[in-house]
Structures are given as C-alpha cells and as structure tokens.
Design a protein around this nucleic acid. Structure first.
Lengths: 212, 212
DNA sequence: CCTATAAATTATCAGTAATTAATTTTTATC
DNA sequence: GATAAAAATTAATTACTGATAATTTATAGG
C-alpha cells in the first residue's frame, strides 16, 4: 500500500480511528439522539477507551458537529448541483426522488436532520441545518421562478415555504417511518419496490403541489 | 366552590399539583426530549421540589408514559370517531385537515409523537404509538375500502401504508417545521393564514394520492 | 533501528440525574 | 378543632457522564 498516487492518500492509524469514531457516533446519535448517546457507547463501538476520543475531538459537542457536517454537506452539494442544472419542470418534480436516492444511500441523515432541527435553537447543529435550508431554498426559488411553473398562490413566499416544508417532511419522514410501516404492512421501506412506490407517490404529490 | 354537581368535581390540591406536573412535563419532554429533560426542570416548572414528583408518579418513565397517554388518546378518539362516520370520499380527503385542527389545539403532540416513534423500540412510548397507528390504520382501511375510491395500486397494503405514512408526515411534520419556515419566510406556521395554506396543500395532495 | 510524537490506556475527578429516606407541613375529613 | 393521610421539603445516596491527568504503548518518519 504505497503512497504513490495523490488520489489514494494512505490514512494514518489515528485518522482511521477518527473515522471509526465518527461512524460510531453517527450511528448512535441518529438512533439515540445527542443526549441519549454517551461517549462511552461511542468509544466502545469504535473499539477504544472513552478518553481516547479526546485525541481526535475536543469534546462531545465537537464530535457531534463533525458528524453533522460530514452527513449534511454531501447532500447539500448534490442538491445544489442538481438545482444549478435545473432547466425544466421535470427537474423540480424529480427533486424529491433525487433526495430519496441520496437518503437511501445514507438513511441516518434523516434522523440527524430531524434532531438538529428540533434541538436547542442556539446550538450549532440547529444553525447548521437552518443555514443549509436557507441556501437551498434561495437557490431553488431563484431557478424555479425562471420556469414559469409556479402557480399564482405559490409566488407568495409563505405558500412556497410551506410547499418546500411539505417536500422535506415527505422525503425525510419516509426514512423515519419504518416502525410505523411495520404496524400496517410487511417489509422494509428501503426495499426497491417500496422505494419505487414512494417515488411514484412523490411524483404525483409534487405535481399536485407545483401545478395549480 | 362546593362539590354540589357531579359534573364539576373539585380536585384536591394534590390532584391539581399532578396536573401541573403533567403540563410541565409535556412541555419539557416535547421541546427537550425524554433524555434531555430532567426531573428538576419539571419540578421547578411545576413549582415543587423534585422528590415531590414521586408522590404522584413512580418515576420519570411513569410520568413520561402518563404524558403520552394524555396527549395521544384524545386525538386517537377524535380521529377514530371521524373515521367511524366517514361515508364519502370527502371525509377522507378532509382527514388531514381534521388532524391539523387537532394538532393546532395541541401542537406538542407532534413532537411527542415523533420522539416516541423514534425512541427505543421496547419502550412503552414506542409501543403505545405503534398500537395507536395500527388501530387507526385498520379502522381507516376498513371504511375506506367501502367507498371504492382506492386506486388499483392502493389496494396493496404496502402502497396504502406508504400513503398513510405520507399523510402523517405531512400533518405532524408541519407543526415541527417552524424553524425551517423561518429560514424561508416571515411569520408563524400556526397563524390562520398559514393553516389555511397548509389545508389547501393537504387537500390537493390528498386527492392526488387517493385518485389514480 | 531510533526517537519524537501520536494515540492509546488507566486512574481519577467534579458535577449531575434519578431516586430513596427522613422530617415537616398541609390538607381533607369528621 | 383534632387527626390521619397526603403532600411537601430537606437531606442523602448511588450511579452515571463528560472531562482531565498521568502513564504506557504504538506509530510514523528519518
């Protein structure tokens, strides 16, 4: 494993540990929340002793923020890029499907997103998510208003914001609803068939929202 | 204040304290979550000392469960009654609006519901919410399948469950999205104008979902 | 191989949270 | 007004959590 290509940078043992810690933390924060996750749990899952965490992160909060950054930024970029290229109505009705695919690759984002949004309003997690939403919304509105597909009611910022919120709740909420699903039907919400069903529903809903 | 009519039962001082405790707990659990809420906070908000909570509840968990029961049961009953009387398609497309009105009267339910759903799967809170959903779904399917308004795809339990999940995510998610809303527009999601907008959106979406 | 540094472990600390026990005060009922 | 019970307060306990300090071990680079 020689460090011969700049594209394949060999990570030090410490860097590998840091990644393990972040993976463990992401998993635990998403399932137990910030308050319900202890550093001992994270360390155990990362296979080190708890004080070892401080070699890589200055504290619990710093670790949480690193996890959030790592989780949310790739999605923000992917969605931003998609919005940047959007030119027709189809590109917008496809947005929830794109988002669904991204979340399918990384289902923990939904829980992290939700927790950060509902968390303490002065927390960096909350601010992070809000900044992200704001940027995305502005990008989306800028390019969407160029397509003439907004109905009269949707020109109103409040109505538009409510539509965007609905879209987010539909897409992220889907990945948080496995337990609810199990009370009603068999199977896994992340199976290809169910994902296809969700996408069909999203498509229909999105068109109902955009065209008035 | 004599106890002269059986319909106006005078509550003892202790019973009044218990109600104050539950009000405080509901407020704090919904905003901070179970783990992030301490008994000291609850006691302080209820204006007693913390060990006093044990005169009314056997522990933190018992208090949480009492809060959930009190919060969720009235809604379950109201929705169940509405479903019981449902006879036409309109009664179903109106369901999210009914639910919106109920949640508007008691916005903390959304957060409690979400937390309980995402909480530990063996917790009573989680089981409570799941039982509730299961019952509601069964009632809904029974009466909905008598109206002939289900599209072909919707006869499938999974597809139907996904629709129901979407409906729940739209309605409860709305009340959890004030912060998101503030990044995009001015105002309060619970204002009459915004509630009206949400209802219009729900109506459109519901019809898109039910009619294929 | 050597050595400085990074990273790990072990030990410890301070504060907090849920809970129990003891005591005091208040309430409700006769 | 008297009294038993309820409910409140005060005091204390136990376990846990995030974090710090000291020591040991592993790693990385020359």
């Amino acid at each position: 494993m020689p460090n011969s290509t700049p594209t394949t940078v060999k990570k030090t043992k410490g860097q590998q540990t840091a990644i393990r810690i972040m993976d463990a933390a992401e998993d635990l924060f998403s399932s137990h929340g910030y308050e319900g996750t202890t550093l001992r749990q994270i360390a155990s899952k990362a296979q080190i002793q708890e004080p070892g965490l401080y070699n890589h992160f200055s504290g619990k909060r710093a670790l949480y923020e690193a996890v959030l950054h790592r989780a949310l930024n790739p999605m923000a970029e992917a969605l931003g890029a998609h919005l940047g290229q959007a030119s027709g109505l189809r590109d917008y009705t496809d947005l929830p499907s794109i988002m669904t695919d991204l979340l399918l690759d990384h289902p923990q984002i939904s829980a992290l997103f939700q927790q950060a949004m509902q968390g303490e309003s002065d927390s960096l997690g909350n601010q992070l998510v809000r900044n992200w939403l704001e940027r995305l919304f502005k990008d989306g509105v800028m390019s969407l208003s160029g397509t003439g597909s907004l109905g009269e009611g949707e020109q109103d910022p409040s109505a538009l914001a409510i539509s965007v919120i609905a879209m987010f709740n539909l897409t992220t909420g889907y990945f948080l609803s496995q337990r609810a699903f199990e009370t009603m039907a068999e199977g896994d919400l992340q199976s290809p068939e169910n994902i296809a069903r969700q996408k069909r529903l999203l498509h229909r809903v999105m068109r109902a929202m955009l065209i008035s």
